[in-house]
């Protein structure tokens, strides 16, 4: 009985991971349109329609499409694997090994994405890639650090300390926001022009795979802190609740991110790097401060 419930919950969580990301992107577009006093796409399923339309088009590339297809497919597979691991965490338990596994997968996905950008020798693409690399490298430091800290807190007695938990959770959420590549940090791809920057040579099914993989990765990343926090008080009583709680909370968090990006402008490259360095240094100092403060009392 236990096992059946666990397996059902696991499969349900994973299936939702596959279907929800484009849906929640459609909802975000509608909300952003609301903030801008207009209608936006006709339905919330618009992103699904877009991806399916892209998959039905012909492949037009400047070099052999296999060079792009391989890293894209690998990246997508790894993102799915990431979803599996997170589902497992959400339903059963956490341990540091799983944390390390998550980190390795996330970094691999990011590296594979950068690799896909090198497919094109177009100067626009190189411009965008360089920017993407600068922001990514800086951000991954923060992401890795606070993810590890979050796992440490979740698997030790430190979890009872709410202030410390918050001091870890908030920078983690910021790092995840930046890795979403949204405004104000969507520098790799210039929005006023369609599909340019590092994505300039992607078209048709390749763009479709990239778009889906990107949305999936964003969503899974957002669900990781939710999955961890779900376990702070121990594993769930009824495993079938896990998919519901996990996905609802992740969707809500994702939409909050969407609203934030709708009210900000795009940052300049040199400013973005400086801001991120400042933010993470500040976060580290605050964390150390809170830790020392809590342990000397």
């Amino acid at each position: 009985m236990e096992l059946v419930a666990l397996v059902t919950a696991f499969v349900l969580t994973f299936m939702l991971y596959i279907f929800i990301p484009p849906l929640v992107d459609g909802i975000e577009r509608k909300i952003k349109a609301d903030i801008q006093s207009r209608y936006g796409p006709p339905t919330v399923l618009q992103t699904w329609y877009d991806i399916l339309k892209l998959m039905s088009k012909e492949v037009v590339t400047s070099a052999n499409p296999v060079f792009l297809l391989v890293p894209l497919s690998l990246s997508l597979t790894l993102a799915l694997f990431l979803a599996i691991v997170t589902s497992y965490i959400a339903i059963t338990h956490i341990d540091p090994g799983l944390g390390a596994l998550l980190l390795v997968i996330i970094l691999s996905v990011h590296t594979l994405n950068i690799l896909t950008y090198f497919f094109s020798s177009n100067p626009f693409s190189i411009l965008g890639t360089f920017r993407a690399i600068s922001i990514d490298v800086l951000n991954e430091i923060g992401l890795a650090l606070f993810l590890i800290l979050m796992f440490v807190i979740a698997t030790t007695s430190l979890s009872s300390n709410t202030l410390l938990t918050l001091a870890t959770l908030i920078p983690l959420l910021v790092a995840i926001y930046v890795s979403h590549r949204r405004l104000p940090y969507d520098l790799h791809e210039a929005e006023p022009e369609l599909a340019s920057g590092s994505l300039i040579e992607f078209s048709g099914p390749l763009l479709g795979i990239h778009l889906y993989g990107h949305l999936l990765e964003r969503y899974v990343l957002t669900s990781i802190p939710v999955a961890i926090v779900l376990h702070l008080g121990g594993p769930l009583n009824n495993p079938l609740l896990a998919p519901l709680v996990l996905h609802l909370t992740t969707t809500a968090l994702y939409l909050v991110f969407g609203v934030v990006s709708a009210v900000l402008g795009r940052s300049k490259v040199n400013l973005a790097v400086k801001t991120l360095m400042f933010l993470y240094s500040l976060a580290i100092i605050i964390w150390v401060g809170v830790y020392v403060f809590e342990h000397t009392i």
Binding site: D34, I35, Q36, S37, R38, Y39, V259, V263, L264
Partner: peptide
Amino acid sequence: KFVKVIPIASKVGTVT
């Protein structure tokens, strides 16, 4: 202050 655009949008509604 930039967040204040949201209440403005909700008061105006959709204009298109």
